[in-house]
Simulated assay, not measured.
Amino acid sequence: MREVADAFAASKGCYGYRGIKAELRTGVSEKVTGRIMAEDGLMAHVPGRRRYDSHGGETTPAPVGT
């Protein structure tokens, strides 16, 4: 359990149960790793979805042509 928490802290909270299992390189299954993480309340950071917005900000004035 301690190894899972240390590996999670080393990844700065970015790895989920699959990444932690690969980092440990032990014979522990992904299910066991996921269960240990759930018991300790360790959840990987997942960025939220963002809506598409084509508006880039302020518009510039039209160029004065020649």
Rank of each mutant, 00 (worst) to 15 (best):
R50I: 08
T59D: 15
V32M: 08
E23P: 00
A62S: 14
G27T: 05
T59A: 14
T59I: 00
E39K: 14
K31H: 03
R18T: 09
R49E: 02
D53P: 08
Y15I: 06
I36S: 09
I36Y: 03
D6L: 12
T66Y: 11
H55Y: 09
G41W: 07
A7V: 05
R51I: 08
S11A: 08
A22K: 11
G65V: 14
P61C: 06
V32K: 04
A10V: 05
C14S: 11
M37C: 10
T66Q: 09
R49T: 08
A62R: 15
G13R: 05
V4L: 00
L42A: 03
E58V: 06
K12Y: 14
I36M: 10
P47E: 14
V28N: 01
S29D: 01
G19K: 00
A10M: 13
E39C: 02
R18Y: 02
G48D: 05
G27Y: 02
R2V: 13
A5Y: 14
Y52I: 10
A38I: 00
E23D: 13
K21S: 15
M1W: 10
Y17N: 02
E3I: 12
D6H: 07
P61L: 09
T60Y: 11
F8W: 07
A62L: 04
I20F: 01
G13T: 10
Y52H: 10
R18P: 06
E39M: 09
M1R: 09
G34D: 06
G65R: 15
Y52G: 03
E3S: 00
A22V: 07
V4D: 01
Y15V: 01
G13P: 12
A10H: 03
M43G: 02
E30N: 13
V4Y: 02
D40I: 07
G16T: 08
G48Y: 03
G48C: 11
K21F: 00
A7W: 01
S29C: 06
I36C: 02
T66K: 09
M1D: 03
P63K: 14
G48A: 12
V4K: 09
T60C: 02
E23L: 14
V46F: 06
L24A: 04
T60A: 15
V28C: 07
D53F: 12
G48N: 09
G19Q: 07
D40R: 13
R18G: 09
I20H: 09
L24H: 05
T60V: 13
E39A: 15
A38V: 07
K31F: 04
A9L: 15
D53R: 05
P61F: 09
P61V: 10
K12G: 08
G16K: 12
G13W: 06
Y17Q: 01
E30D: 05
V64A: 13
A7T: 06
V28G: 02
A9I: 12
A38P: 01
I36V: 13
F8P: 04
A9C: 11
R2F: 05
